[in-house]
Design a protein around this nucleic acid. Sequence first.
DNA 1: GACGAAACATGATATATATCATTAAAAAAC
DNA 2: GTTTTTTAATGATATATATCATGTTTCGTC
Lengths: 239, 239
Amino acid sequence: MIMKRGKIDIPTCGECDNTEGILCNLTVQNKEVISERKGNNFYKKGQAIFYEGNHANGLFCIHDGRVKLSKLGEDGKEQIVRFAKAGDILGYRSLLSDEPYHATATAMEDCSICLVSKEKFNGLLETDAKLSVNVIQLLSRDLRGAEQLLIDITQKSVKERISESLIMLKRTFGLQEDNKTLDVVLTRAEIADMAATTTETTIRTLAQLSDEGLIELIGKKIVIKDFEGLQRIAGFSSY
Amino acid sequence: MIMKRGKIDIPTCGECDNTEGILCNLTVQNKEVISERKGNNFYKKGQAIFYEGNHANGLFCIHDGRVKLSKLGEDGKEQIVRFAKAGDILGYRSLLSDEPYHATATAMEDCSICLVSKEKFNGLLETDAKLSVNVIQLLSRDLRGAEQLLIDITQKSVKERISESLIMLKRTFGLQEDNKTLDVVLTRAEIADMAATTTETTIRTLAQLSDEGLIELIGKKIVIKDFEGLQRIAGFSSY
DNA sequence: GACGAAACATGATATATATCATTAAAAAAC
DNA sequence: GTTTTTTAATGATATATATCATGTTTCGTC
């Protein structure tokens, strides 16, 4: 995932080859409109795209790369609330309600991200009814995800949550060519931040899942050996 | 809060005296439109308005009374995700995305609730840009609430969460005429379902807050004696 | 390719909170 | 107004998971 620096690499929205995203379904004209004054940026792995609490001034659309969205607790502990990948937009919520960013967005790998002007997007929203329906559906989906995460975290054991997290990672990022290795690289600390537990407990739990033959750990790579088994654990209380 | 049974008691949306609600800001004409085929129902305390997982077939608008929205975990433990009161609408999310209800709505006290037809509402949404912006903002607000709740529950102690819950109840339902008693009646089990803990722990924690002079417990009534103190314990989170 | 810094791993111990058990009080039902 | 059911209260005990401590491996960098 190497990328050259320079605007030349970033196509306009009309030329963008991402297909699954709220801005990908716009009409040709509207794609022109938002492309018109579009900026774009590269972020290296680990860099922040925006910070929770900061003022929102544009809409981010991921052209390439993966991003994690997290919130910080009082004590500085991080909770990953969502992931985003190519085609996904970031920061629209704060934009709509004119509030600070509700979460911090961090590049999980080198990313290329387009920046759509606040005015262009809000203008489009007023005229394009389909877009606003799409935004509503996006919000609904995120809300459903957040509520499910809440139930999972409050009512499931760590083992169930870790299993659930692995399933979620498979759903979000898919598998590599071998059709069994998760196509995403996370530290144990990040998995802990997903499952709302500690790094140590995550390491132990992953080792346990490995011992039980459900997964295989090859460095940071996680191979899913028994997906149904994981689902069974994630669903039922069994420790 | 006594109410006579019969449609005669329920005004049309134009005549409704609720002011704070997404349907309260509609134009006179649009209020007519949704009133046209509006149904209405009475629910006694404890009755369910709809169940999580069931198919959505209309939009509920609370005319009078309070409602709790909760989700059930695998093991049957309840998590209260939100409250709703006069003017608030319920079930719109499932309506928009044509999905089953994401939560169960239960009347916390005797309620009178209007039922707006799915078609009328969705039709309005297509023509009334202001309404869809309002829906977007409603969703944003709920999402922010859900995410904050997630952080609170995963990163705070039970004492902090209970304090937070009390603050949230004050914000949502306000105080009685004495300006210090929470204007809502909940069982200890329900408070436990808000704070994601057990009934026993809730009882003990409330007793502790009482011992420390922050609140006073008079039967089910909860008197807030030191609001700032509660905020300090809760850790200032605000949504 | 050596060095320092992350990340990973594992054991020992602590602790917040759940669970279980029982009784008391309040509310609802008859 | 008595019985039954629900809710509240309190103590004893169990346990999942955090925390602390320490060593090892991997990774990025000069």
